[in-house]
């Protein structure tokens, strides 16, 4: 059986909020290492991969592999019933029909309990090879969100070009064009504001801004975001979560003219 207790419901609420625009139904794969999720959007352009390691929970118990097929709209409805600071416990039997969510207030004696009916989801699973990326950019997640939002006002697509000069986000639209260039930067007062660029070879790729803007819904989960790029492979956008957990988005590039 599964029993996983999160100190703050907020973490799961934010993760689910970040992916509901991309994915409707998905399996939460539970085993002794934690709770994982991999799902593609309907058009198979973007992929979400989440890992909440067992260390992120206290306690965490899962004796065998359990797949919880959950409709994310249903999960969102139930998670709205939890206060952000509530303690959240997920429970399921070994061959479950439902997943049980318990919300406890640390300050009062309130205890809320909900069951969500599970679904059989036959999900296509993709193998993601370990990739040595040509360029990795770590930057404030709010900055990436702002650039994406600003350029989306002008265009559907963004070109991300990484050279030793820095990283340039640029777009061309009906009303004109725009670009934002970032260089490696160390902020002495606040390292959250640092921009670091690791480059082994120059990269230039084009992506859909609509998808990037969806990924940026995860900005509340982490002050930092890491973009990893190589020519002609999907972009990896990664938000680090507590206890070495992560929320990753992959986005297939636009190709050719």
């Amino acid at each position: 059986m599964l029993e996983a207790r999160l100190e703050q419901a907020n973490l799961l609420k934010k993760v689910v909020d970040s992916i509901t625009n991309l994915v409707q139904d998905c399996n939460f794969d539970c085993n002794d290492s934690g709770i994982a999720l991999q799902a593609m959007d309907n058009s198979h352009v973007a992929l979400v991969a989440m890992m909440l390691r067992s260390d992120a929970f206290s306690p965490f118990r899962c004796d065998r592999n359990i797949a919880l097929g959950i409709n994310l709209t249903s999960l969102t409805k139930v998670l709205r019933c939890a206060q952000n600071e509530d303690i959240l416990t997920l429970k399921a039997e070994d061959a479950p029909d439902v997943v049980n969510l318990v919300f406890e207030s640390a300050e009062s004696d309130r205890l809320s309990e909900y069951d969500i009916k599970l679904m059989d989801i036959d999900q296509e699973h993709l193998g993601i090879p370990d990739t040595e990326y040509a360029a990795s950019i770590t930057m404030p997640s709010a900055e990436f969100q702002r650039i994406t939002r600003d350029l989306l006002a002008l265009s559907e697509s963004v070109s991300i070009e990484c050279t030793k000069e820095g990283v340039k986000f640029s777009c061309q639209g009906d009303i004109g064009s725009g670009s934002v260039t970032l260089r490696s930067h160390t902020n002495v007062d606040n390292e959250d504001r640092n921009v670091s660029i690791d480059l082994s070879e120059p990269v230039s790729l084009m992506f859909s801004l609509k998808y990037l803007s969806n990924f940026c819904k995860a900005s509340g989960l982490s002050s930092r975001v890491k973009l990893s790029l190589s020519n002609e492979v999907p972009l990896l956008v990664e938000y680090a979560l507590p206890s070495n957990s992560f929320l990753r988005f992959y986005l297939a590039p636009k190709i050719g003219d």
């Binding site: 352009v45 193998g127 297939a252 590039p253």
Partner: peptide, 14 residues
Amino acid sequence: TAQQSRLEGFFKAV
């Protein structure tokens, strides 16, 4: 305009 590629072209189904 650039053509949107899909993930299957890059990642293998397992």
